[in-house]
Design a binder for these strands. Structure first.
Lengths: 151, 151
DNA sequence: CGCTTGCTTGGAGCGCACTCCAAGGTTCTA
DNA sequence: TAGAACCTTGGAGTGCGCTCCAAGCAAGCG
């Protein structure tokens, strides 16, 4: 049976530790599932579309992830939260693979993303203001109804 | 030809005015497209899935939106920005249609949404911190490379 | 009157990000 | 050494939120 989103009982949570020290960091896919909250399907899919660096294999061909891979997945998770399309993340991954001469392009991509995140936060603040107005309206209406009932 | 996302040249922008005063507020679908930035397809689809209140029709059956409808679409737009699923918005619309006795339920739904938005903002802040760290890393690397080149 | 533009409908299609399946090989535990 | 649990692959399927299509009616204009 495929282990799919098993015991991530509580929600996402902060970056899980329990990592092994560098040198003994050869995690199976299901360990990475436990670390990241992603499914094994998604991890393999990320690899297929070029979102992952080359992943080590055991002598029988099973994936063995490293601490570096986990770090990368942390970053991907963060970028995902910003709403960045997977295609853009793949672009970034390609730049990383291409080597040092892509530093400026990566820099620009990150800065654009940063601006997007700031804009998103502002949008959400605007929405929060609207929600707060509505909520206080309903709170007032609720109080009015309650005093109506108690009369 | 279907008018689809015509002259919303600049980006979303603040809530457009140019509304007509209440009483003469009978907008065609293409006017609402101009106001909201949504497509006519999307507006009809919103109606089909129950996300809109009943929309007035002209004597020949064409939609005539009111200022109230525009207000509702503004709210929907804000909620959409929070990532709230359309199904949840439909639920909220149903509660509104069902009348006053759903006040508490609406109140709770809005409060839950408010919490979600706050959590989203916090997530984005976390991502921003990561981005800033990476950006300053690349900025340093860029400077190092520049001084390398100038030697 | 014809022409263009806009609006109507139900239903089909699309892009994204997964999500799952089938069939088979591997690894761990008792 | 049996059996359960886990891993592999390519490709197909899913759910969401639109997005578009075809065929037809309606309104304004020269």
């Amino acid at each position: 049976m495929e282990t799919t989103g098993t015991r991530t009982d509580t929600c996402a949570g902060p970056p899980q530790q329990n990592r092994r020290p560098d040198g003994q960091d050869r995690y199976t896919i299901s360990e990475v599932v436990a670390f990241t909250g992603l499914t094994a399907h998604t991890l393999r899919w990320y690899e297929r579309i070029g979102l992952m660096p080359h992943i080590d294999r055991s002598h029988t061909g099973q994936r063995r992830y490293t601490n570096r891979d986990l770090d990368w997945l942390d970053l991907v998770g963060k970028l995902r939260l910003t709403g960045m399309p997977v295609a853009d993340m793949v672009r970034y991954a390609e730049l990383v693979r291409e080597g040092d001469h892509t530093y400026t392009e990566r820099f620009e991509l990150l800065q654009t993303t940063r601006e997007d995140v700031l804009a998103r936060i502002e949008e959400l603040r605007g929405t929060l203001a609207v929600l707060d107005r509505k909520i206080s309206f309903y709170a007032d209406a609720g109080r009015a109804l309650a005093s109506e009932r108690s009369r």
